[in-house]
């Protein structure tokens, strides 16, 4: 397979113009973006972001994301999981499933997939390249939906502000949770899927001509 790297070409990441004879620090002649054969320091940057996201994942799930004070009941602290359980037990099964997917499954899936992609790219593995590329696309597509709980808590905190009766405050957990979402989004952006294909074993070359 003829690749841009083997042919000595560089693809502009922004406007998709293809250039040859590119010197270091050159900019794309069409759109002006910096030209890099691969995203710079892709693996180490992505590792750093994924590790930071893994660390934030713990407080995100253990600390309360929402603190409800409603008279005359005492203060109630909700974590991500207890919020999902609340929906389930109160009969809102559809919402329980939506929040479970967006807030629990998606972040976990993203971290697991990013670690898988990083380890296989780092070991120059040619294992299931097509499927790994698909996993990367899925991660890019679904990542943003984890912001759901951040918006839910923000809107509730803005709306339920009736002093003396009921107030909702955002808890520290939601900040950690938002950090996980933002860090994993940056991680999938800094990962260069071409690195997986670069190091793959020579594939069954189809006769071109």
């Amino acid at each position: 397979m003829k690749t841009a790297a083997r042919l000595g070409m560089v693809l502009c990441g922004h406007c998709a113009a293809l250039w040859k004879d590119v010197q270091a620090h050159d900019r794309c002649g069409r759109c002006g973006a910096r030209l890099h054969p691969r995203k710079p320091d892709s693996l180490s940057r992505t590792w750093a972001l994924v590790i930071a996201a893994c660390i934030m994942y713990l407080p995100a799930n253990l600390l309360p994301v929402m603190i409800t004070a409603s008279f005359p009941r005492e203060e109630q602290q909700d974590t991500i999981m207890s919020g999902i359980i609340y929906f389930w037990t109160s009969g809102s099964w559809v919402l329980a499933v939506i929040v479970f997917i967006a807030s629990f499954l998606v972040p976990l899936f993203k971290l697991a997939v990013m670690i898988l992609l990083l380890v296989t790219a780092w070991r120059h593995s040619s294992w299931r390249l097509l499927e790994r590329t698909r996993l990367y696309r899925i991660v890019e597509l679904i990542g943003r939906w984890s912001m759901l709980d951040v918006f839910v808590v923000s809107l509730l905190a803005g709306l339920v502000q009736i002093q003396g009766f009921a107030t909702v405050h955002a808890g520290p957990g939601i900040v950690a949770f938002a950090a996980v979402v933002v860090l994993t989004m940056f991680a999938s952006m800094s990962f260069d899927p071409r690195l997986m294909w670069d190091t793959g074993a020579p594939e069954q070359e189809k006769p071109d001509e």
Partner: peptide, 15 residues
């Protein structure tokens, strides 16, 4: 530096 306007490279696998 020279542009190759009649070629296109895949941004995911570099083909």
């Amino acid at each position: 530096m020279q542009q190759l306007p009649d070629l296109i490279a895949c941004k995911e696998c570099d083909a």
